[in-house]
Amino acid sequence: MNHYQLNITADDKQVVLERILQVARYRGFLINGINAQVNNADNIGIIKLFVSSERSIGLLVDQINKLIDIKSVTVDNKATQSTSA
């Protein structure tokens, strides 16, 4: 089982969290934790998503990136390495 941390920025829409969680579950990733905040200055949501799966994280990154309200998705390699050790 590989553990990953994703750093996601998104438009501040209430439902964006639901969309991300639905995609993560459906695509075969266990959600281990989530940290979400909104930057009120520019209405951008900043989400840290902690997931684990046997599947390649690239599959989830691509699927989350397809969501309309998502601005960026990156894998935190440092966190990924430390959690999978």
Partner: peptide, 8 residues
Amino acid sequence: IDTAEIDK
């Protein structure tokens, strides 16, 4: 056209 289909 869909990045998510590559290597899926």
